[in-house]
Design a protein around this nucleic acid. Structure first.
Ligand SMILES: [Zn+2]
Ligand SMILES: [Zn+2]
Ligand SMILES: [Zn+2]
Ligand SMILES: [Zn+2]
Lengths: 158, 158
DNA sequence: GGAGATTAGGTTATAATGTTGCAATTCTAC
DNA sequence: GTAGAATTGCAACATTATAACCTAATCTCC
């Protein structure tokens, strides 16, 4: 299981580590972590809530970056390709990956109240995939699981 | 595992059975399966491919139904609430449920080539949910899993 | 069967999300 | 330096989904 989002932690460390892992990964892959791309990654990591592409536009604009939809989508596509962020389809939103570099399915719990998302270990999803491949003869290439509900904090805040 | 979509079958039977189960379920729940709602259900079941809301509009129009987005979305929301259809978030599309009435997570394999979707047994997803609840203290209310890849037919058609 | 409540549908407009196409620029490799 | 590739800027557009407001149908209870 990836780090627990619900425990207090130094979130600057989350951001820094995300950026530094991104740098490493880009070097390895011969990809370029350009200013927009890095800034988008940082903004996605601003907190542990999935963020919409259009939420990023004004923030980029404030900082003098070009801010048209294609800019943001291109940066996000780049980060998705490298496995640095995941897309939460049910929210049309994006969130930083807690263990980029290791290929793995997107698997998250999202709190419907506060919006925070926790990446989950996806071993069980792999089982579903293997089972489907065996029983149906399909070939699985991508996997995503999204759980929705209440996080510990929001359960208490009744 | 729900019926296997990749086996030849009398698809009219799929549609008929979907409609008749819908009728039963609506009676049980005191809900009304109005003409638009039934027709939308039938159109969703036209084949085993997830269908977009906007694909339904012209078809409804042909048949003299009102065809504005709210009409279709209201019908789809109704069917979703009753568990008669599932939403495939990664495609912004909808597909008939193969075993409505029994509460269960949405769990599908979708072929990226032909677009056909196969509903899967979701027991493993429940395990993920229980594990997350135990280890993180979250409360899971909804679950969805989407696998993407190639179906048996499209693998052969190389 | 009629008044009032509830549910469903019609209509128009608009919001939110995502894409295409092309020109200009920047980087990389030779 | 220069050719080719990758990246960015920019404008328009496409797709998906919802808001707001009103009318019509249906249900409930007397
Ligand atoms: Zn953090
Ligand atoms: Zn991840
Ligand atoms: Zn069928
Ligand atoms: Zn189902």
């Amino acid at each position: 299981m990836a780090q627990n989002v619900y425990k207090a932690h130094d979130h600057h460390a989350c951001i820094d580590s995300a950026v530094s892992r991104a740098r490493t990964l880009c070097e390895e892959q011969g990809a370029r972590l350009t200013p927009v791309r890095q800034r988008v990654l940082e903004l996605v990591w601003a907190n542990h809530k999935p963020v919409g592409a259009y939420d990023l536009l004004p923030k980029l604009a404030e900082e003098g970056f070009n801010s048209a939809p294609p800019t943001v989508y291109r940066a996000l596509d780049f980060l998705l390709d490298l496995g640095l962020v995941h897309r939460i389809s049910s929210l049309n939103a994006f969130i930083g990956c807690t263990h980029p570099g290791e290929a793995h399915p997107s698997c998250f719990f999202v709190c419907r109240e506060c919006g925070e998302a926790q990446e989950l270990d996806a071993e069980q999803v792999n089982k579903i995939a293997r089972q489907a491949e065996q029983m149906l003869g399909v070939k699985v290439e991508q996997q995503m699981t999204e759980l929705m509900g209440l996080c510990p904090r929001c359960q208490d805040a009744v």
